[in-house]
Design a protein around this nucleic acid. Structure first.
Lengths: 228, 228
DNA sequence: GAAAAAGGGGTATAAAACTTCCCCCTTATT
DNA sequence: AATAAGGGGGAAGTTTTATACCCCTTTTTC
């Protein structure tokens, strides 16, 4: 079996020791460095050019490991990065998979799983693990759909007037015409008129359809940020 | 081991026979139907409610299997779909992963791999296979980046006035201020003023930067379609 | 180095758009 | 029956926009 050099990146001594013990048992794996921060990791990666980097995410800050991975992809593209973390939340996973990582493994994984991850990474045969796959599939579908459908919606929203945008925000929050009128301190008739204009621009016959296409594409957050 | 019902969908007799042979060897797997088209597949899925559907992609047309999978997700959401195809091109894979499939397996896979795919799908533990993972990682990063950058640019473009949009279109075509003034039959000073306003909204110091971010995200076509 | 283009700031005015309100009405929804 | 949703016409006042002119500096181009 091919000789592999490994860099361990984790800010906790105990975690580094556990990994060192696991790797130490295998003669074809050798640790060429240990880093306690993202910064150190980037420097050591350039210096040692390891085959594999085992990278924790949360160090100096919540995403230090992801940023380090991203920098290493640029400065030391030959090193394969395995994210080895306790975090299995969507944010961590999606951020990680936006950089070119080989694998994403939970720290509680068995010795065998960690070694398998290293071997797979080295031979470019890392699958995406089941617990990641389901989340990634969903998110992938969402962003792909977003990309495909945004063009039309974009054109419509570009033509909305400032107060129409504000009313649209309120509609997305589920407010009725009456509530929106109260909120904006204007007559109900005014709101009715403007919603009518919004529907025309979207070419829809009722507000439900408009809200649906906005929710379907997760555009609410985006619309909510529009400020005139 | 739990009893699993399986639906085979493929327009080629020989392929269906091979799968039937593989499945027939295992007592806990039973074939409850065979379909030769996407349409048949949807009907049989509703009728038989199979645990697993082995689905070919290219049947009536190039993407019949993907469409069928999408419909089955809606009408028979309990059935797990395994795409089993000869196509490993990006289009097929990305389309497949936009619908909720359990796995994507190449037809030349060994008997063992196919059975493993079925077992994993049944127990909700399908990883994304290495040959798919690398492509999916790349595409995921691309569309995620698109979505992130789009949000900011979107907010800016939503605040542009009609004539600012027109001038932006001209700028993207590489026209100078003088040319745009001539094109719109207005004074040069007017255009200078409006471009100044555009730069402020984009928070950029020159038009090159604005054009660059528009081109970087392939937004020109989209902006060009905006009509007030 | 001169000329042209790009970019920033101020001011002003007519036209356009927006906001608001009123009236009327029909159709869903409850 | 009552309320909400949706469509259409009209009209007032206000705000923005589009346009133009002035001034200036910096950058690019020839």
């Amino acid at each position: 079996m091919e000789q592999l050099t490994i860099l361990i990146v984790d800010d906790m001594e105990a975690h580094r020791r556990r990994l060192a013990r696991i790797i130490g048992e295998l003669p074809h794996l050798s640790i060429v460095g240990e880093a306690q921060s993202g910064k150190e990791a980037v420097a050591l990666a350039v210096e040692e050019e390891p085959d594999i980097i085992l990278m924790d995410i949360e160090m100096e800050d919540k995403m230090a490991g992801i940023r380090a991975a991203s920098e290493i992809n640029f400065s030391s593209p030959e090193s394969k990065i395995i994210i080895l973390t306790i975090h299995k939340d969507n944010d961590s996973i999606f951020s990680a998979y936006q950089t070119n990582i080989a694998d994403y493994v939970i720290k509680s994984a068995s010795k065998e799983e960690i070694i398998e991850a290293i071997e797979n990474a080295a031979s470019n045969t890392s699958p995406i693990r089941p617990f990641v796959a389901s989340k990634l599939r969903e998110e992938f579908a969402r962003v792909k759909k977003f990309e495909e459908n945004f063009t039309h919606i974009f054109q419509v929203i570009a033509t909305l007037t400032p107060s129409e945008v504000e009313i649209l925000k309120s509609l997305c929050q589920g407010l009725t015409r009456k509530q929106i009128a109260a909120e904006r301190s204007v007559e109900l008739e005014t709101i009715k008129k403007q919603i009518s204009s919004i529907l025309k621009k979207f070419d829809k016959r009722n507000t439900k359809e408009v809200i649906r296409i906005i929710n379907d594409h997760d555009l609410f957050t985006m619309i909510n940020k529009i400020q005139f």
